[in-house]
Design a protein around this nucleic acid. Structure first.
Length: 193
DNA sequence: AGCACGATGCTCT
DNA sequence: GAGCATCGTGCTT
């Protein structure tokens, strides 16, 4: 009996709640017919046009359009000339918000993941997408379906005592309070695999 | 263990 | 034309 993906209602709520709840969830990628997965260990919330750290802050563009759509879809974008970033779209359709998935702890398909990473770690947003072969073609895919190439399932419960919060990473030229607001969530230590 | 820097190209002004 | 929700290397403590 296969596990069902997290339902759309999971994503259709406050982005901070989704970011916290995604810690420990199982990110699943079907790549070349193989199932790769791992547990999410770090995530950040990007919340609407008022959030000057959010790509949607200056309105809808071709790049950020998926964030304005229904929750539970993947927002995948390209940055720094070489890196892809994976987000899960949150909140009601029309309100642009998402959770950046920054790191995961590999579980299924660890040998494939290790080979793709050439033995290096998977703790970092571009490392994660490189490990799982996530790029432009997955922008906009529905994360609530199990018959696609990418989705998220329930995983491990992460106790509040293991959750660290802090400022989001890499927002060098974003003004306060958005630069320092503690919308980053991460698991302290290793999850039991 | 920490910091500085270059790589590299898409997106929006 | 500037700016990036980064990474890996190489050099300094």
């Amino acid at each position: 009996m296969p596990v069902s993906p997290l339902p759309r209602e999971f994503y259709n709520r406050a982005t901070l709640s989704v970011a916290r709840a995604l810690l420990g969830a199982r990110l699943v990628r079907r790549l070349d017919g193989r199932r790769l997965s791992g547990f999410i260990t770090e995530a950040e919330a990007y919340v609407g046009q008022d959030d000057l750290g959010c790509h949607a802050h200056s309105g809808r563009t071709a790049r950020n359009a998926v964030m304005f759509g229904p929750p539970g879809h993947a927002y995948v974008y390209f940055t720094y000339g070489m890196h892809w970033m994976l987000n899960a779209v949150t909140e009601a359709e029309g309100f642009p918000a998402a959770v950046l998935i920054r790191a995961f702890q590999p579980d299924e398909g660890r040998e494939v993941i290790a080979a793709r990473r050439e033995g290096r770690d998977t703790g970092g947003p571009a490392k994660l997408t490189q490990a799982l072969g996530i790029e432009r073609s997955l922008n906009g895919v529905d994360l609530c379906r199990r018959d696609g190439e990418l989705w998220i399932e329930p995983g491990l419960e992460v106790a509040d005592a293991l959750v660290q919060t802090g400022p989001r990473i890499g927002l060098y030229s974003v003004p306060e309070p958005w630069k320092s607001i503690p919308w980053r969530f991460r698991v302290a230590g290793r999850l039991p695999v």
